[in-house]
Amino acid sequence: MSGNGNAAATAEENSPKMRVIRVGTRKSQLARIQTDSVVATLKASYPGLQFEIIAMSTTGDKILDTALSKIGEKSLFTKELEHALEKNEVDLVVHSLKDLPTVLPPGFTIGAICKRENPHDAVVFHPKFVGKTLETLPEKSVVGTSSLRRAAQLQRKFPHLEFRSIRGNLNTRLRKLDEQQEFSAIILATAGLQRMGWHNRVGQILHPEECMYAVGQGALGVEVRAKDQDILDLVGVLHDPETLLRCIAERAFLRHLEGGCSVPVAVHTAMKDGQLYLTGGVWSLDGSDSIQETMQATIHVPAQHEDGPEDDPQLVGITARNIPRGPQLAAQNLGISLANLLLSKGAKNILDVARQLNDAH
């Protein structure tokens, strides 16, 4: 009898209710805020589980004197976190989706994509230029951005401005803007500013005609071990179906173009009346040469937790077992079709030249 009692006690200790789920994140304040929001949602869904947040620095956090596009290494903000995932030191990792490459290392998958916040870019102005827009900034004003995508589009749109690289986390960039006289304004992701509670610093939100956004911008991705079915089931509740389908289309477009950090590629997606609209573009580094096109596809946005595919093969690095396969494939095909259209119009040449120029500098 006593033996059975011990077995029952052991089973209770090993039951999922007692389990601590370890969540990996970057150390920056924004990353911690984003991770806290994901953990809060998981806690609400699984009140019996405990969650421990483990923060670590990544290569991208450490190399702050070089433009991201020049470092010449993929997975700048993800490699150390993936290493911890691989060694079973954490069970899942919360990322900004735009930091996750469209091809993940073997053994990993994006197990959830959370509801997207505003994906557009924002302009934050130096205190002396508050009330201005990019259009009304004085001639030769210097605007800071760490992104080739932003610089290429904005140089084309605002030729009277000069664009220079600015690195560091959000706090560091804002301090550089406010305390030094080098920059009249800087460009940042609206979602990051909003998550930090800095709505009052948003001086201008850039519309798609001015600057399309990065693939996955404004959404959070939760990376897990691809074979860890328990954790895949656990994080599945975080999937937002519309965000998922938009981001599958965007990531398929980028992957098929073979774009990345070192080339200016941008997108804009919208879901309306059962249609998914995808606009994508590529630019030369100075913005003088560009190709942009829009395509659409009829896609039914499923309700969360309709029964999805059981075999769960990944699409552009994403596993969404609780979302039907048909809409996911339709979104992926839309991204591939748009990429093929741009490639047929000469996108590869623009991107190759951009890559060579970026590598040469």
Rank of each mutant, 00 (worst) to 15 (best):
I186G: 05
L206Y: 02
A354V: 05
K227L: 14
G317H: 03
V222Y: 02
V222Q: 01
K176N: 08
S290P: 10
H160Q: 13
E52P: 07
T41M: 14
G24Q: 00
T102K: 02
P138S: 11
E162T: 06
P138D: 10
P101V: 08
Q153N: 04
V353D: 15
R26C: 00
I33K: 01
L276C: 10
E52R: 13
L97G: 01
K348M: 06
L148S: 07
G144S: 06
W198L: 12
T145R: 05
I187F: 09
E82R: 08
V235M: 11
V235P: 01
A40G: 12
V130F: 08
P313L: 12
Y46M: 13
L234E: 02
A320R: 03
E250L: 02
Q29F: 06
C261H: 00
I336L: 05
I63G: 11
L276D: 03
F129L: 12
H268P: 04
E179G: 07
G218R: 01
P159W: 05
R246A: 14
L137S: 06
D289E: 09
I318P: 00
P106W: 11
V142M: 10
Q332C: 01
M271Q: 08
R225K: 03
K345V: 05
L234T: 06
N118F: 10
H83P: 06
N200F: 15
V130R: 14
G197Q: 03
R201E: 00
S57L: 09
T78D: 06
K98C: 05
N118C: 13
R175H: 05
D312I: 02
R164F: 08
A303W: 01
C114V: 06
V267F: 14
M56R: 08
L206Q: 03
L68I: 14
G236F: 02
E306M: 04
K348N: 15
D233C: 11
R175L: 09
L49W: 07
H300Q: 11
V282M: 08
L137D: 03
R22S: 11
L278E: 02
E73A: 09
R156H: 13
F77I: 04
L232R: 04
H268E: 15
T190H: 15
L170Q: 14
D91P: 04
P159I: 08
G168H: 03
A360V: 15
E210M: 01
R173N: 03
I323E: 06
D230S: 13
H160V: 05
S69P: 11
N358I: 15
F51L: 11
G197T: 04
E162V: 14
G218K: 01
T41V: 09
H256F: 14
Q356I: 03
G111Y: 02
V282P: 01
A320N: 00
G60P: 02
R201F: 04
G72F: 14
E162Q: 07
I21A: 13
I318L: 05
A191I: 00
N88M: 12
I186H: 07
L174Y: 08
T35G: 10
G218V: 05
T190L: 13
M196A: 12
A151N: 12
L357F: 14
G259K: 14
Q304G: 06
P264L: 06
I299F: 14
A354G: 15
L315R: 04
T294V: 13
E179A: 14
V353K: 00
K140S: 13
I21C: 05
A191D: 05
L315N: 04
A112S: 09
E139R: 08
K115D: 13
R164V: 11
A44N: 13
T136D: 13
